[in-house]
């Protein structure tokens, strides 16, 4: 029933022939196809990863640009506010200076007016004094009357002066 004979060697040869044929006709093409598929999948994955990275970079770039634009806009607004504040302050200071100058001018003018009025009054006093002297001399009054006349004039003069002031 069990007999080992030359069939064994023939089977080994048969199998080796089968290996050679299968390797050439079937295995190599299948292995090549599997390699191609594996490479393609790997390439697709690599490409997808690269695309994702590029997309993330673009997004980050856009975010940076947006942040930069916001910063610049804020800077412009801040600068405008600062300029406006400086101009307002300058205007207020100028106005204050103008007011001060006008005030000083007014005071100076008042002082001048006062001085001028005082000068006028002094000349008026001199004139009146001369007139009084003329009257005294004309009437030739006694010494007592003369003193009275002078005192009256002076008292009258003082009251006039203070009233005028």
């Amino acid at each position: 029933m069990i007999e080992i004979n030359a069939t064994m060697i023939a089977q080994v040869v048969n199998f080796l022939i089968l290996v050679a044929i299968l390797r050439a006709l079937a295995y190599e093409p299948v292995a090549k196809m599997l390699k191609q598929r594996s490479d393609k999948i790997q390439n697709s994955l690599d490409q997808a990863a690269a695309d994702r990275k590029a997309a993330e970079q673009t997004l980050a770039q856009y975010k940076n640009q947006l942040a930069e634009a916001n910063r610049k806009a804020q800077e412009i607004v801040d600068r405008a506010e600062l300029t406006a504040r400086q101009e307002r302050d300058a205007l207020v200071a100028e106005t204050k200076r103008e007011i001060e100058r006008m005030k000083q001018n007014a005071q100076a003018e008042i002082q001048n007016e006062r001085n001028r009025a005082f000068e006028e009054m002094k000349s008026e006093i001199v004139t009146l004094s001369l007139q009084a002297a003329e009257k005294i001399v004309a009437k030739n009054l006694s010494a007592k009357e003369n003193d009275k006349l002078v005192n009256d004039f002076i008292s009258g003069l003082n009251s006039n002066m203070f009233n005028a002031k």
Binding site: I2, I4, A10
Partner: peptide
């Protein structure tokens, strides 16, 4: 089902 085949392959 022939030992010649299986033994041949095993020896190979």
């Amino acid at each position: 089902n022939d030992l010649n085949t299986t033994l041949g392959l095993a020896l190979l």
